[in-house]
């Protein structure tokens, strides 16, 4: 199943998400990749716990979030050992070039936080099991285009729930199952946190409530007309 089917609704975020047009542009970049969720599940390998990854997100250095830092250069430092891994390295550079091309601060910081998760192995010691790098380009795109389009990366750091969402999103698109969770649990918790899906459902619910208000208004008018007709009749 392609991720596109879940992303047809609006992108109004729960809090300080990027401006709608910019968010839409980021999301379109993600949808253009046409990533397959089923393929990700099929290739899942064990990964560290979501809590451990979330904790690392919370420890991101300020320098990574600085808009002046070029993510392509940053990736060169962080993923230096991956050089020579051919296609994946090329894909990473492609994604990060796209990030730079968008000019979006949210996308840039989203990618930088993803890079920090790998960089943290050197700074803080590797997680157990270590974070995978086989699908680095996909994970970077998910963080920079998919998640950053609906939740500002600043919230990944400041809000516990959004941090958990970022950790799970990263693990999933890296092709890793959170430690201590089976596929059903991981899928359920990721869905529960998924702001993109939730925003779509919220937009639909808000439309229904708007319709309810309209029905209410019509009832008020009907009551007023009835009162007026009765008064005239008397």
């Amino acid at each position: 199943m392609a991720d596109r089917s879940k992303a047809q609704h609006g992108t109004s975020g729960p809090a300080s998400a990027p401006a709608p047009s910019a968010a839409e542009a980021l999301l379109q970049r993600w949808l253009a990749r046409n990533e397959s969720i089923d393929a990700v599940w099929a290739g899942m390998v064990p990964g560290p716990s979501a809590d451990a990854v979330a904790s690392r997100i919370g420890a991101v250095p300020k320098t990574f979030l600085d808009d002046r830092v070029r993510v392509v250069a940053l990736a060169g430092d962080v993923l230096e050992s991956d050089r020579g891994r051919g296609q994946e390295s090329t894909d990473v550079v492609t994604v990060l070039d796209e990030v730079a091309a968008t000019g979006s601060s949210a996308a840039r910081r989203g990618a930088a936080i993803a890079l920090w998760l790998w960089a943290g192995d050197e700074e803080l010691g590797p997680l157990a099991p270590p974070l995978a790098r086989e699908h680095a380009a996909r994970a970077l795109a998910a963080m920079a285009f998919r998640l950053a389009s609906v939740v500002d990366p600043a919230e990944w750091v400041s809000d516990a729930e959004r941090r958990d969402e970022a950790a799970r999103t990263f693990l999933f698109w890296s092709g890793q199952l959170p430690a201590g969770e089976d596929r059903e649990t991981a899928s359920s918790l990721l869905t529960m946190r998924d702001s993109l899906q939730r925003n779509g459902a919220l937009a639909a619910a808000a439309e229904e409530h708007a319709h309810r208000l309209e029905v209410t208004r019509k009832l008020q008018e009907a009551r007023a007309r009835e009162a007026a007709a009765r008064y005239t009749h008397e």
Binding site: G10, S12, P20, L202, A203, H209, L213
Partner: peptide, 10 residues
Amino acid sequence: AVIKARGAGG
């Protein structure tokens, strides 16, 4: 849901 929709400008 209405409060959130308004927050998002909807």
